[in-house]
Simulated scan of single mutants.
Amino acid sequence: MPIIESTYKPPFQFKNGFIATVYSGLIRKVDLFQERERIETRDQDFLDLDWSYAQKKSDSVIILLHGLEGHAQRPYVTGSAKLFNQNGVDAVGVNFRGCSGEDNRFYNSYHSGATNDLDDVVKHCIEKKGYSKVFIKGISLGGNITLKYLGEDRDIPKQIKSAIAISVPVHLNGSARELHKPKNKAFAIRFKKHLVDKLKVKILQFPDRISVAEINSIKTLRDFDEVYTSKAHGFFDALDYYEKASSLQFLNDIRVPTLVMNALNDSFLSSECYPVKEAKNNPNLHLEMPKYGGHVGFIQKNKVYYNEQRALEFVKDLIH
């Protein structure tokens, strides 16, 4: 599929990727009422889902997946939910395990390649809720999960009509390298603190799985993936996790119309995270690379973010 020429033009001050990223993550506000539902996963853990609805009964739903240490109340989730609700589509924000304000039941939690929980949510929407049209939108880590899920060797339900992935680290090792560079130090410190704080809760319930000394050895995000993510989820080490969980290797096998939007000034993404070759070789894969936008920072003057507008445009003909 030819590369999409982007029309995104941000307000002047938001041409700076750092400013766009910080503003969107820490300052943006979206007013949205959500109802929470808890579902059981196939392995007897739980997921908390936050629902918002269109004015009229809808046969369409968009599943929204957040990024690393996010949750379903983050503005990049609620902004999309609100816009889709206004256009006749129900929305469900998925809180990954341990991200809804309550720790999950097991030592393992969530990671960039964990697709079974998304599959459980998809089946819940189709089999229990009765939706005939399902869209998926993943942001950052959630985008990698979305793309990997769609390209894996599994039966994708016919009700999944389209997907959107925003600011996606499709090559996890490359993205990890970028996050450890000085330009991203503030973000890396923030992510690591949230993750380590959660691990300090885990050790109280699972003292036989990890020690205080191991937690204290975590100085970087990569250390966290060495000490916890890889070991808790069946990988040999951090590199093995990055290689197996990266969605890049699954893009050629995506069979539903999918839009990937990665800004060229996204400081979290390495050169490998712009899958031009894969998009040109797969008619289902649409790649848009705006010059600006930072990491999930596609700000516009009308309060609707460009990535949210484009997501709606991408699926609009399928809604009704």
Rank of each mutant, 00 (worst) to 15 (best):
G174A: 05
T220N: 04
Q159V: 10
R154E: 15
A186Y: 10
I145Q: 10
Q205E: 09
I164M: 08
N252K: 14
M261P: 13
G234Y: 03
Q249L: 15
P169E: 07
G151Q: 01
P182V: 00
S246G: 07
V260W: 14
L239T: 15
L147N: 05
S230N: 14
V201D: 08
N216F: 03
Y242K: 06
E243Y: 13
L172G: 07
K244H: 15
K148N: 03
S217N: 08
F235Y: 14
V227S: 02
L147S: 05
A213D: 10
A238W: 00
L248N: 06
I210Q: 00
F206E: 00
L195M: 02
L248H: 12
L172Y: 04
A213I: 00
A263C: 08
K244Y: 15
I145K: 09
I164Y: 15
I203A: 06
E152R: 06
A163I: 02
E178K: 12
S246F: 05
V168W: 08
S247H: 11
C273M: 09
P157L: 07
D237P: 05
R255S: 15
L221M: 06
I164W: 10
S230Q: 12
S230W: 02
I254L: 06
D266V: 14
N265F: 04
A176Y: 00
N262K: 06
E152Q: 11
L204C: 07
I156C: 07
K183H: 09
F268D: 11
E178S: 15
P257R: 12
G234K: 14
Q159F: 04
N262R: 05
I189F: 09
D197N: 01
I164F: 11
